[in-house]
């Protein structure tokens, strides 16, 4: 008992020393580089006062708003696309299965950045899509491919007997999915779907390349005007963390409840 505790204390100390060491190394190098930290110039990009004296969101918060908006809309479409693709892959129709397969292979074997640029520079002019729509479409298609694999796994985990009793009761395929199969997949697919939404938020940073004023773009924009490179990237990274870490913690508690319950 005592041995174990001594070991834990040692590990905590070791962790602290390592962290302080890394931080010190970072600071030392930045000093050597001659970088002049100007943290006092940062708050105005988060929140500021307008001429009337009332508080208005700064550029970074506006960017975060766009990041969250794009992520949220894409998450909804990615879930719909994922569900449809999963069902197509499991259907008895050859054409349906092939369609799903081609989509999955294309999306999962090309870089997301290329998909975003392709959508924006090739598809958008053809179909008259705005940058915002291009961003939502490319993110939805990309995340939808991964979502479909999660949902497919959930569907396959439902015992065969459930299909058989639905069949022998005369239920249609749509009703079987809607009332019998899909509700039983929630327990299994919610945690991975939630972590997929964290990936979505992170991946959405790439839409800054097609002139969407999201959090990453806001950061780049401020840096180009102020040269506050170090401070702004620190803050941008922290803002992403502030959004994704709570979601990750929520997922973990969800997983725990699911594995202990039932």
């Amino acid at each position: 008992m005592k041995l174990v505790r001594k070991n834990t204390v040692f590990q905590i100390l070791l962790f602290a020393v390592l962290m302080v060491g890394l931080g010190g190394l970072f600071y030392y190098n930045s000093v050597n580089l001659g970088y002049r930290w100007q943290w006092y110039r940062i708050p105005r990009y988060i929140i500021s006062r307008n001429s009337g004296g009332s508080l208005v969101p700064g550029a970074l918060v506006k960017g975060l708003g766009m990041t969250l908006l794009i992520s949220f809309i894409s998450l909804i479409f990615a879930t719909i696309i994922g569900l449809l693709t999963a069902i197509l892959r499991l259907s008895s129709s050859f054409a349906g299965r092939m369609m799903a397969k081609v989509y999955l292979e294309l999306v999962r074997n090309t870089p997301l950045l290329i998909q975003i640029l392709f959508t924006y520079f090739v598809l958008a002019p053809l179909f008259g899509m705005s940058p915002f729509l291009s961003a939502v479409i490319s993110l939805s298609l990309f995340e939808g491919a991964y979502t479909s694999e999660i949902i497919r796994g959930g569907i396959l985990a439902v015992p065969q007997g459930q299909w058989e009793s639905a069949y022998s009761l005369g239920l249609s395929t749509v009703d079987t999915y809607r009332f019998c199969i899909i509700p039983q997949t929630f327990r299994q697919i919610l945690p991975p779907l939630a972590s997929q939404s964290v990936s979505l938020i992170k991946d959405s940073a790439l839409v800054s390349t097609i002139a969407i004023y999201d959090l990453t773009m806001a950061g780049q924009d401020i840096i180009s005007k102020t040269f506050l490179t170090f401070e702004i990237w620190f803050v941008v990274a922290l803002v992403y963390l502030a959004v994704t870490i709570p979601i990750s913690v929520l997922i973990r508690s969800m997983e725990k409840r699911i594995s202990y319950g039932n």
């Binding site: 015992p159 007997g161 459930q162 058989e164 009793s165 009761l169 019998c180």
Partner: peptide, 20 residues
């Protein structure tokens, strides 16, 4: 569909819908 609805089936493993 007519046959599926006119023929009832009971399985060894019950196969009730657990979420209902």
């Amino acid at each position: 569909l007519e046959i599926r609805t006119e023929v009832g089936m009971v399985f060894q493993s019950f196969n009730l819908f657990p979420h209902m």
